[in-house]
Design a protein around this nucleic acid. Sequence first.
DNA 1: GTCTATAGGCAGATAGAC
DNA 2: GTCTATCTGCCTATAGAC
Lengths: 187, 187
Amino acid sequence: MPYASDHKQKSREKILTSARRIFKERGFDGVTIDDVMGDAGMTRGGFYAHFRSKGDLIAHALASEGPDEQKPWGALELLGFAELYVSADHRDRPGEGCPAAALTQEIARSDDETRTAYTDFLRRFAEVIDTYLGNDGNALSDDALAIMAQMVGTVQMARAVNDPMMSTRLLKAGRQAVEYLLPPEAD
Amino acid sequence: MPYASDHKQKSREKILTSARRIFKERGFDGVTIDDVMGDAGMTRGGFYAHFRSKGDLIAHALASEGPDEQKPWGALELLGFAELYVSADHRDRPGEGCPAAALTQEIARSDDETRTAYTDFLRRFAEVIDTYLGNDGNALSDDALAIMAQMVGTVQMARAVNDPMMSTRLLKAGRQAVEYLLPPEAD
DNA sequence: GTCTATAGGCAGATAGAC
DNA sequence: GTCTATCTGCCTATAGAC
């Protein structure tokens, strides 16, 4: 037989891996199915054996994003995490970065499936922060939500401004702000 | 003569007024020139008597955005300003709201003209905050930049999540965070 | 200055070969 | 399962009438 039994599954993973990166680099509307499939080493026609539509791909790409992933964020303390998140490196490499910093505004205008996948992602993100803070309750803490918003907003604006000095200053101010937002008991 | 002498100028203003609102509601890519011109009461063909291209319109629409404008934000204190900015009303009415909360990510992927117009807008925005804080120096303060990032990031995520409870909690946490970010001397 | 009409290009989705 | 070829619709920009 011409295809191994897990061939389809591997193709699907390749498509998702390409999609996650390219969507974050260029936005949903700036990416065609041809772009994603070409990056994954296939052609457009084969796409529909894996996903129903472009919107379906978007939802699955988002659902497969994890703040825990292969990134080097595991054992660091929260301030170290914030140093990496609110950094020039993260600013300059959106494709390997956080989907919230790259896609939040397009998601706000997307369908329910996509917004649900994003909501779940944000929950996982905030849970990571709460773990750093020592909060192990069920509900997300206000501190975690505020720190997340600070980091996401900062990286976004640092990417958008045209002035390198202002971009650097935004990042610096954002890192400081995370410190100010730490609850007093979490030192 | 069939047209008043200021007719062209008034048409241009109508186009810009429609563009500012529609772009913030649906994003640059989600809006066609037909949409803008239709909203302004004209047809597509007339557009190019006013702007060279869609990108040109985007840059001029952004350049004409002001945080000082006709909005009811004038005389309030900074916390009052933050209450209005980080509110359910602002979340639910992006068309009348801040361009940074609606367009930052698309701008990060736009041409230099657009990014320059955005950078200038952010400077004016941060200057308003610095005025509230009593900072009248030439450079923007870190506090103003951080408060701006907090507000912008919070409203964006509150718009994108699919869970009304989580959206409300994000707004509440974001408003609290602005308080924590106030410098100690500005009480 | 603004209109209608159209040129030209691109992208999402499908059909059918292998 | 993936390929090439194609249908269909939409959008930017231009041409030319009024």
